[in-house]
Simulated scan of single mutants.
Amino acid sequence: MAKGKEARVGIILECTNCVRKSGNKSRGISRYSTQKNRHNTPIRLELKKFCPYCSKHMIHVEIKK
């Protein structure tokens, strides 16, 4: 068995456009949960996902859990 930290960790992806509009009349913030391999992807993950609040595909970045 492997010792130490596990390679797969759970992460949360958050819409960058909704976060910037949070001071204005934003209806919410789009968030997705997924997993990533810590050893293969040590930097913060950025994926293009659909945001239901913006009604289009936007860049979602990894945030702390």
Rank of each mutant, 00 (worst) to 15 (best):
M1E: 05
A2E: 08
A2M: 07
G4V: 06
G4L: 07
G4K: 09
K5P: 10
E6R: 14
A7D: 14
A7M: 02
A7Y: 09
R8D: 03
L13N: 03
L13D: 02
L13Y: 04
E14C: 11
E14Q: 15
T16N: 06
T16L: 11
C18A: 07
C18M: 06
V19C: 08
R20K: 14
K21F: 07
S22L: 13
G23W: 06
N24I: 05
S26G: 10
R27P: 06
R27I: 07
G28H: 01
I29F: 08
I29A: 05
S30G: 14
R31S: 10
R31C: 14
Y32D: 01
Y32N: 02
Q35H: 10
N37G: 03
N37S: 11
N37W: 03
N37K: 05
N40S: 15
T41L: 08
I43G: 08
I43M: 11
R44W: 01
R44P: 04
L47E: 13
K48R: 13
K49S: 02
K49G: 00
K49L: 15
F50H: 13
F50M: 02
F50R: 04
C54T: 02
S55L: 13
K56Q: 12
K56R: 14
H57P: 00
H57S: 12
H57N: 11
M58P: 00
I59D: 03
H60K: 02
V61S: 12
E62T: 05
E62S: 06
I63H: 01
I63T: 15
